[in-house]
Nucleic acid binder design. Structure first.
Lengths: 183, 183
DNA sequence: CTGCGTGCAAATTCTTTGCATGCCC
DNA sequence: GGGCATGCAAAGAATTTGCACGCAG
């Protein structure tokens, strides 16, 4: 699982972008990005990523995880889609829209096919605004068949992973000092 | 601005749902929900909501804001769309999709018209999955004309409110103990 | 060499919770 | 009255940052 072509390409692309921006290629960055690249598109969390990273390099600190994740985001190398309960999904923008449906009750993911067509539709929707569609991941919530069944009673309890309760890794704020090219 | 019909209706609907679930109608809950209802769809934050709430009732505690916001989410009365930098947008699900476009660079919002048609499109997209589309707000990122201009140089700095750096109010976790009807 | 990036730990910020009290039903 | 909801303050989580050091360029 550590070495399929797709993963390598993704890691390569990342390293390249680092170089382009005059940033340093460190072992930690490569390790972390490989871990991420191996599990693109699946629900994950900062903890989970950190854990898997430490299996390769036990010395890596959590601060580096946050810093690098922030860096990746700032560089536009990954997109984040928040699921809920502190989990999120990372995607590499392929210059395309990545649309995913998920069940708001059980959290199951349903990747949707034919992304190209959907991209065009979205572009059309944006036409009036002057916006140019960016590569990104869009998540659409639904209720899957099973959960619909389970929720038949009008007053069924809300989902364990409720409509609210979404939370992201909070990769943000004012740390944007690091990793800047010439101002 | 405190008393338009639309707002009142929204507040009413909320109070009703509270009653339906056997929860109590308190002054704080009404105040808070009115504040929210008055500013639906605009970028906001927990702080901002708390501030505006205290203008009406200075004694209200921030814990109540969090508790009530969580409650609203659990009850499905509001949807949250995370923007970035700790801001989010609250929407009342109108049994419809609420689609908004925003500029990832400057954060400007572009509401999209003709929601009905878009809802149908999304429903069609979900067809294979067995999912039933839920009322929700979906945000699509783009680059507005001006920012596109400003970013012409290939190595322009990333947005102040970067692609990452999204963070929500984190209304979540295990407080889901409160406000339950009969188990 | 130079200084960027790292690990570590402390600091911050954000959110939730325990408890005593007040108020809705 | 009885118990849910609140305010307050303290606890807990999650994330960021200061600092000294090591390594990439």
């Amino acid at each position: 699982m550590t070495n399929n072509t797709r993963t390598d390409e993704t890691v390569q692309a990342f390293l390249e972008k680092l170089k382009d921006r005059g940033l340093r290629l460190t072992a930690q960055r490569e390790t972390l990005f490989r871990v991420i690249a191996e599990d693109l598109g699946n629900p994950t969390s900062v903890q989970n990523i950190w854990d898997r990273t430490r299996e390769v390099d036990p010395s890596i600190g959590i601060a580096t995880i946050y810093r690098t994740l922030n860096l990746l985001g700032e560089m536009g190398v990954v997109n984040i889609i928040y699921l809920s309960d502190g989990e999120f999904r990372l995607d590499v923008p392929l210059q395309k829209i990545h649309l995913t449906a998920f069940c708001r009750h059980c959290g199951a993911l349903f990747p949707l096919p034919a992304e190209d067509e959907k991209q065009h539709t979205l572009e059309k929707w944006l036409e009036g605004t002057g916006l140019e569609l960016l590569p990104q991941s869009v998540a659409v919530a639904g209720l899957c068949t099973e959960c619909r069944e389970a929720l038949k009673s009008p007053d069924a309890l809300p989902a364990r992973r409720g409509p609210l309760g979404q939370q992201g890794p909070c990769l943000r704020r004012r740390c944007r000092r690091m990793g800047r090219v010439q101002e």
